[in-house]
């Protein structure tokens, strides 16, 4: 389970002069992000490019520290209980980032060992995941020539290697073809039905609409609306998510203008 409460993070602007006022030296990537993602549920973090999705996920994954606000992963604070959070969290960043000179099996095995599994346990767990994600055909080939779909599977297996309760996927369907996307959705649904909490970030409306039980719309570093698909449509008075999204984002800008 993920509970984020008014997360805020800003970065130093490249090439900013030191004499400039503080507000101009720094740029807020995430202004105020609050949402929750429940166990057994697929939660979508929906927002355009540059809305702050990746930064939010990085804060939740303890890679960077929030400036203000806090977040809990399965009851552990991301700012203070770093190792506990990491043990409960599987994170798949938006680029698979697998090692091209290692085989799929070695890629997964390496992560299993780093998560504290013994050699034997690692081999067993790696075998399980290869079977579960139907990777047998390419498990012992080096990753250099893997298709995007194969790379994503390896990365997903690595994220799952320590049986985390919570799983975060940053734009996992990027670059996948239709069949691979369908396969991945199947896997995600399966994991959710097993009781995992899944946070799924995307900028593609249809995908979020098709897959997620719960949606948080993020725009310009702020979560503007958080609800189920039906509720969001009802609240905005729109028929599809795209229109609802535009409406929600506009209401934010509107609010700022006033």
């Amino acid at each position: 389970m993920i509970v984020a409460n008014q997360l805020h993070k800003s970065f130093k602007r490249l090439g900013a002069s030191r004499r400039a006022p503080k507000s101009e030296q720094y740029i807020a990537a995430v202004k105020s992000v609050s949402f929750s993602a429940l166990d057994g549920c697929i939660t979508g973090l929906l927002g355009p490019n540059g809305a702050g999705k990746s930064t939010t996920l990085r804060m939740l994954a303890t890679l960077i520290k929030p400036e203000s606000g806090n977040a809990m992963i399965d009851g552990h604070d991301v700012a203070t209980q770093v190792l506990q959070v990491r043990k409960h969290l599987g994170f798949m960043p938006h680029n698979a980032g697998i090692y091209p000179r290692l085989t799929a099996r070695e890629n997964i095995h390496y992560y299993a060992r780093l998560c504290g599994l013994t050699r034997k346990q690692s081999q067993q767990r790696t075998g399980e995941l290869i079977e579960q994600l139907t990777m047998l055909k390419f498990a012992d080939r080096r990753a250099t020539g893997f298709s995007q779909g194969q790379k994503t599977k390896v990365a997903l297996a690595r994220a799952l290697v320590h049986r985390p309760q919570t799983l975060m996927l940053d734009e996992p369907t990027n670059g996948l073809d239709v069949m691979a996307t369908r396969g991945l959705r199947e896997i995600i649904r399966q994991l959710a039905s097993e009781g995992h909490c899944i946070l799924f970030s995307s900028h593609i409306m249809q995908e979020v609409a098709a897959l997620c039980d719960h949606i948080a719309i993020i725009s310009d570093g702020t979560v503007v609306m958080e609800d189920s698909l039906n509720e969001i449509l009802k609240r905005t008075g729109q028929n599809d998510l795209e229109d609802a999204f535009v409406q929600a984002a506009q209401s934010l800008n509107h609010g700022e203008d006033e």
Binding site: L63, L89, M92, G97, I98, G116
Partner: peptide
């Protein structure tokens, strides 16, 4: 290769 990000999110 952007393999550092997943690596550093491990316990």
């Amino acid at each position: 290769r952007q393999s550092l990000e997943p690596l550093l999110s491990l316990p």
